[in-house]
Design a protein around this nucleic acid. Structure first.
Lengths: 197, 197
DNA sequence: GAATAAGCGGACGCGAAGTCCGCTTGCTGT
DNA sequence: ACAGCAAGCGGACTTCGCGTCCGCTTATTC
């Protein structure tokens, strides 16, 4: 074959690294995990680890990617209210709930991959941005579309969600309820949201 | 005197450090500034710097503190709509506008002091939390008070604001307009906001 | 102007990042 | 089967920032 496949030992090491990293991020503070930690836990050398992943964030992104893709799929082609078909306000509420699920289940990965300003460059932020922007358009909320998108996405920052859950001890349900209240409030101000159908 | 005053050389070095740090944070990427950089720029040794500030964040916090205190004063005893007297929705809008001012003028310090999860422990987050909580109480929005506070504060994270301003190029006015739209939307859902006067 | 201790500052140890290169090993063609 | 090859491996090494430690300096007091 012209295009070389991945060598067997390389594939074995890839899964070793990902499994070890997933376990590490879940067990200890994700921010304190070093590349050496991951290499040691995976039983590979540092050079091997760096060959595929330039830094710790990239490892976490690789792990998170799969889960984020699945949600993206549901947003694009899934059933309402998450997928197309429902009114924008309802879709926004469903999106918030789904993101809260993601953060609940994979918060340790999100903290390792998308903390601080990295959130905007790394990972799926662009996709979430486009999705919420489209919902605002559907609702006729053109006026502050640009800034409003990021404002609505801000509470989904991993550190905000984890602070509410872990430090303040607020339940997932209550956080979602607060997010939905914001969604309702904003989308209720749409001039002609009812014009839809 | 029993209580020793600060020695003259110590006072001199304190101002040297603060002035040099302010200039550094403004000129280069705040995240890349090291303690050695600050010490060198201030013309003092590392030991001297560490004597007063345990890390880079503490230096930025010291610089930011003064500005934040001034805003806190205005929130507590200033004139409406920022201070007491105006309806909670109006006060919330004024608070958003004032925080946007703060982030516009001292964003470089905020980025150095309150990035990521540090935002919740360092600095004035507790104060902002109490203030917004009180506004929600005034508006009769008791239901999701706990989670709603952090949700409403999330878009004021320094990295979010800077992303909107610098990367997306959105004007301060447009960001404030989006924030105000959120404030209006949420406070309009108050069951008995009118009961106030 | 001597005594005192607060303050100074740079050398140093530590640990993580990231690179480099000689060795190993899986794969291919004969 | 096995020889040749390059993809892949891994750990030693360099660099860099953090934070500490301790002998020296100097402001202050009497």
């Amino acid at each position: 074959m012209v295009v070389r496949e991945e060598r067997a030992d390389a594939a074995r090491n890839r899964t070793r690294v990902l499994e070890a990293a997933e376990e590490l991020f879940a067990r200890v503070d994700p921010a304190s995990v070093t590349m050496e930690d991951i290499a040691r836990a995976a039983g590979v050398g540092k050079g091997t680890l760096y060959r595929r992943y330039p830094n710790r964030d990239a490892v976490a992104v690789a792990l998170l990617d799969e889960h984020e893709r699945r949600l993206q799929e549901r947003l694009l082609t899934g059933r309402p209210p998450l997928g197309p078909g429902a009114p924008p306000a309802a879709r926004m509420r469903a999106f918030y709930a789904a993101m809260a699920d993601l953060l609940d289940q994979h918060g340790h990965l999100a903290l390792a991959a998308e903390t601080g300003a990295k959130r905007f460059t790394t990972g799926a932020y662009g996709f979430w941005r486009a999705h919420v922007g489209a919902l605002l358009d559907d609702a006729g909320l053109r006026r502050q579309r640009g800034a409003l998108v990021d404002t609505l996405l801000a509470p989904l920052a991993p550190e905000v969600y984890q602070y509410q859950r872990r430090v303040l001890g607020i339940s997932r349900a209550r956080i979602v309820a607060a997010l939905e209240l914001v969604a309702e409030g904003v989308f209720a101000r749409a001039p002609e949201a009812v014009k839809k159908a």
